Amino acid sequence: MSASSPTDWYRSWGKRLFDLALAGPLLLLTLPWLLSTMLLLVVTNHGQVLFRQRRPGRYGILFTLYKLQTMTDARDAQGQLLPDAARLSRLGRWLRATSLDELPQLWNVLRGDLSLVGPRPLLPQYLPLYSATQARRHEVLPGITGWAQVNGRNAISWQQKFDYDVWYVDRVSLGLDLRILGLTCWKVLRAQGITSAGQATTTAFTGNPPTQVPPSV
């Protein structure tokens, strides 16, 4: 029987211990700031404080993701939601630029829904649109930050994001997670990659282009 590698140990249970060791103290440390910000959101967002949305986790199993509410529910005369850019409040824009709207996800980490590092949890409607390779991003817990986030975040294409996600899945390790967390802090301080070109956040994933079949001879 071959001995387990350090990577196997970390994948099996070391990563979970790492998450708990960091997420608990971080949540306690930021709690006063979180509560103060939530009070501001009560005023600026007309009582809307927490954003809750069902997202697919490991193996595609749905869980409830928590974030600070950065958008209002402003609608046009026909009752349709306004574009993202029009619904982002000034406070919400700042929270997104600093990624502080993600802090409630530390609770998701403590619950075991998320890891600190992993592919970002996307929308449930994307699940049937993935290729077999892209779907491998669900072989690990999703994360608050990830390899795609420190390599462009919303400023890169969907295919690039998925390539980075699968690259991470194949190389999970403590060293890589520490590297990603360090790069995340640097990226957040510089507010890089928050949006896609011409978008307030990012465009929706609509699936993969059809495979081009060469004409028969």
Results as ranks from 00 to 15, higher is better:
S4P: 05
S4R: 12
S4C: 06
P6K: 09
D8N: 12
Y10M: 07
R11M: 06
W13F: 13
W13I: 09
R16I: 00
R16N: 06
L17W: 09
F18M: 03
D19H: 04
L20K: 03
L20H: 06
L20D: 01
L22D: 05
L22N: 01
L22T: 06
L29V: 10
L29F: 14
L29W: 14
T30M: 13
W33E: 01
S36L: 15
S36Y: 13
T37R: 00
L39M: 14
L40M: 11
T44E: 12
T44V: 08
H46D: 14
H46P: 02
H46Q: 15
H46K: 15
H46A: 15
Q48L: 04
V49Y: 00
V49K: 00
R52E: 01
Q53E: 08
Q53N: 08
Q53D: 00
R55D: 00
G57I: 03
R58N: 00
R58M: 12
G60M: 03
G60Q: 00
G60W: 01
L62C: 01
T64A: 08
T64S: 13
Y66P: 00
Y66I: 00
Y66S: 07
K67W: 05
K67T: 03
L68Y: 02
Q69E: 13
T72E: 06
D73L: 15
A74E: 14
A74W: 04
R75F: 08
Q78V: 08
G79A: 11
G79Y: 14
L81Q: 12
L82C: 12
P83K: 04
D84E: 13
D84Q: 10
A85D: 15
A86E: 14
R87E: 08
R87C: 11
R90V: 12
R90D: 11
R90E: 10
L91K: 02
L91N: 08
G92H: 05
R93N: 11
R93G: 13
W94Q: 06
L95F: 10
R96K: 11
T98P: 07
S99K: 14
S99T: 09
D101A: 00
P104Y: 05
Q105T: 08
L106N: 09
L106D: 09
V109K: 04
L110F: 08
L110I: 11
G112Q: 10
D113P: 06
D113L: 13
L114K: 09
L114Q: 08
S115V: 05
L116E: 11
G118I: 09
G118Y: 04
P119R: 05
P121H: 08
L122D: 07
L122V: 12
P128Y: 09
Y130R: 07
S131C: 04
T133P: 02
T133A: 14
R137D: 08
R137A: 07
